[in-house]
Structures are given as C-alpha cells and as structure tokens.
Simulated assay, not measured.
Amino acid sequence: MSTEPDTPTAVFLGDSYTVGTATSLDGTGFPAILGDLRGWHVVNLGFPGTGYSTGQPDGRCPPAGCTSYIGVLPDAVAAQPDIIVVSGGRNDLGRPSLDEAVAAFYPELRAALPNTRVIVTSPLWDDSPTPAALVELREVVEREATAIDAEHLDLGDLFLDRPDLIAPDDLHPNEAGLELIATTIDAILPLE
C-alpha cells in the first residue's frame, strides 16, 4: 500500500482491543478508524493476549510465543513511525513485576524512537466494574508515560454499564465500541 509523502505513519502497540478481536474489524481494530479520522497510515503491531509484561503462547504466535510490548519495539522502529500509540494493559493484571515491566518499557521506547510522537492511552476494561488492580495500573502507565514526555490520554471507563458496546463474547468491544475508542482518542488528542 503506497501512501502520500506527507502522510504520517502511526504504529500501534496493543492487545486484542487494539486489533479488534471478535469483530468484523479483527486485525485492524480501532487504529484503522482512528487512522481514517486523522489521515494516518496505520501499522497495527498489536496482538491478542499481550501486554507490558505478558506474551501470548498460542497457535497464532511463533513456537516461542508472542512477546510483550518491549519485544515488539524492533518491529516498531523498522516501520519508521512518525507516531507511536500504545494502548493496552488489561492482560497484565496479576502478573508479577508488572510495575517494573511498565517502568522498563517506556524509557526503552523513547531510546528506540527519540524523535517520534508517543501517545499512550489508559488501559481499558469491559462493561463490568473496573477492578482496583486496573485502576492502579492506569496510574503506573500515566506516570511512566509522562516521564518520557509521551502524551497520555485518560480514556476512563468507556464501556462501564454499556453492554451494547461489547461483542457477544462478553469481553471485547464490538464495532461500535471500537469506534468509540477511536472517536474518543480523536476528540481529546491535540493536533500536531
């Protein structure tokens, strides 16, 4: 796919919410919608089940499994992004050394892409009450993202008590939920 010379390339790192699992947008997810809204060329490097400290060893991954976000950085650098968006974290809950994994990831991201615009969203939850552990993770993500001069976007509890935005699997956002993620980011993200 060719892009116009002035079209910014935006790389997305994330999980199943980023790739649109359980929807007709599976593989492209909310980044495709946001890319259309913003005029970005999107490279979606998200993968279901992954996170700051979590890789997913399933049939869609290489034999060694998928890597956590820090392991995807070489692919992100290879895409030569103007923008990188990090969105995820729900798969990390209950993992040991989670705070340390988040604290290690962001300086590594900035070192790998020192001149790239970095946008970080707060981790999202489904339509059930947000667990305290995710609220704590949101604070850690905001602190570490801010420490590297990333733009942190607090998306809040977009889906709380909104089963109409959740897919039949009762876990992932449906198409309307993915659109809400994209339009919320677009509404609060400053132009550059």
Rank of each mutant, 00 (worst) to 15 (best):
G156R: 03
G156E: 03
G156Y: 05
G156K: 00
D157A: 07
D157P: 05
D157C: 07
L158C: 11
L158H: 06
L158M: 04
F159S: 12
F159A: 04
F159E: 11
F159Y: 15
F159R: 07
F159H: 09
L160Q: 14
L160F: 13
L160T: 13
L160P: 10
L160C: 05
D161A: 13
D161Q: 11
D161K: 12
R162G: 04
R162C: 02
R162Q: 15
P163H: 10
P163M: 12
P163E: 09
P163K: 05
P163Q: 06
P163D: 03
D164W: 00
D164M: 00
L165N: 13
L165F: 10
L165C: 07
L165Q: 07
I166N: 04
I166G: 13
I166R: 06
I166H: 02
I166V: 07
I166P: 07
A167M: 05
A167L: 12
P168V: 05
P168R: 00
P168E: 03
D169Y: 04
D169L: 02
D169N: 07
D170V: 14
D170T: 11
D170K: 14
L171I: 13
L171N: 11
L171Y: 11
H172A: 09
H172Q: 11
H172L: 13
H172K: 12
P173A: 09
P173M: 06
P173I: 10
P173R: 04
P173D: 10
E175R: 03
E175M: 01
E175A: 07
E175L: 05
A176W: 01
A176C: 01
G177E: 11
G177P: 00
G177H: 07
G177C: 03
L178N: 03
L178G: 02
E179M: 01
E179R: 02
L180W: 00
I181H: 05
I181L: 12
I181R: 04
I181E: 11
A182H: 03
A182D: 14
A182N: 13
T183I: 09
T183F: 02
T184L: 07
I185E: 09
I185S: 06
I185M: 13
I185H: 09
I185F: 04
I185Y: 11
I185A: 10
D186N: 15
D186F: 09
D186I: 14
D186G: 15
D186T: 14
A187S: 15
A187T: 13
A187I: 08
A187W: 08
A187E: 15
A187K: 15
I188E: 09
I188T: 12
I188N: 12
